[in-house]
């Protein structure tokens, strides 16, 4: 096994690097450590609109990235350390989380963190989650990766993963929310930075030594190509969401308004609005075909001529009725 520590904190780059190694470097096993700048990372078959606080993510310009493994949505920032195992996989054996999670738990225990396995694929301290993991298998290769909340902004995590209070129906894979905690809060020595924690984890997990994998310019070029053609694309991150229907009953300027939408590949396919004090037909027509984005929906409402006759209209309040 060889190790890679990514020096890039771009979520698209790191996910592309991981996939590149998974698909192309089959001669060896790899252990990769990586951190991302503030971002949301969702499971391969999730409905992004069902998992995130769309308005907050657009307002704060948070990158949203779809990964190639299963499972639920997580928040990453520079206080969260990710690890990946990219190894051979025997099709005739069952999928196993323990072979990857156990060495991480043992290393955490050695460092002085009372971490233990929880459910199939999580690591927790006193019942609070510090790590979730997921996998993908293809042919004779497996990719297992997980998060390690070290010193992450848990306010942002909860804020950005707060979902709509409207009703969404889809056949997507759903996230399972957990109470989380940061590893740092459970360490005797709280002066350790995440970079020091990363080095310590690597040294503890591979106490007999591990060779470093040198990423070449050629690798970087191929990874950047994958970023450009896949990971940075709206079509991959948002458009790949399973179709869904959305329903919300709200009040806008103290008047009731009921919204029903169907969204296909991230685009509003049909829109039915009920509210006797609103020019519903005009709004319906204007929103059909629009990308299901808070900013774009609000823009469309701003351009709706018949809404301009409503006194003291608050477009944010009205746009909220659609999310």
């Amino acid at each position: 096994m060889k190790y890679i520590v990514s020096t890039n904190d771009d979520v698209y780059f790191n996910l592309a690097l991981e996939e590149y190694i998974f698909n192309n470097l089959k001669d060896n096993s790899y252990f990769m450590l990586w951190k991302n700048h503030d971002s949301i990372v969702l499971g391969k078959h999730q409905n992004v609109f069902e998992e995130i606080n769309i308005k907050a993510i657009e307002k704060d310009n948070i990158k949203v990235a779809r990964r190639i493994t299963g499972g639920g949505t997580v928040f990453h920032d520079r206080g969260n350390l990710n690890y990946s195992f990219i190894t051979a996989y025997d099709k005739n054996k069952f999928i196993d989380y323990d072979q990857f999670i156990t060495p991480v738990i043992e290393a955490l225990n050695t460092i002085g963190v009372k971490a233990e396995k929880r459910r199939t694929s999580d690591i927790a301290i006193e019942g609070k989650k510090i790590s979730g993991s997921a996998q993908t298998v293809k042919g004779n290769r497996a990719l297992h990766h997980g998060t390690l909340l070290y010193d992450a902004d848990l306010y942002m995590l909860n804020h950005l993963l707060k979902t709509t209070d409207g009703k969404i129906e889809s056949k997507s894979v759903k996230s399972v929310p957990s109470i989380v905690t940061n590893i740092k809060d459970h360490l005797g020595d709280k002066s350790m930075t995440i970079d020091q924690f990363q080095d310590l984890l690597l040294a503890t997990m591979f106490s007999k030594g591990i060779e470093k994998f040198e990423i070449t310019d050629q690798h970087i070029e191929a990874v950047n190509e994958l970023v450009e053609n896949k990971y940075s694309k709206w079509e991959w991150n948002y458009g790949n969401s399973p179709d869904f229907s959305y329903e919300k009953k709200s009040l806008a300027f103290s008047k009731p308004i009921d919204v029903k939408l169907t969204v296909k590949k991230g685009i509003i396919h049909s829109c039915a609005i009920k509210g006797k004090d609103f020019p519903c037909n005009d709004m319906e027509e204007s929103l059909s075909g629009t990308i299901y984005s808070y900013n774009l929906v609000k823009d469309k409402l701003l351009k709706c001529n018949s809404l301009k006759n409503i006194k003291n209209i608050n477009y944010d309040e009205l746009a909220n009725c659609f999310f």
Partner: peptide, 18 residues
């Protein structure tokens, strides 16, 4: 042979079935 027919997800594992 080797073409991916479908993908299955279980226990947070995505498996491409060839």
């Amino acid at each position: 042979k080797g073409d991916v027919l479908f993908e299955v997800e279980t226990e947070k594992v995505v498996s491409e079935v060839e």
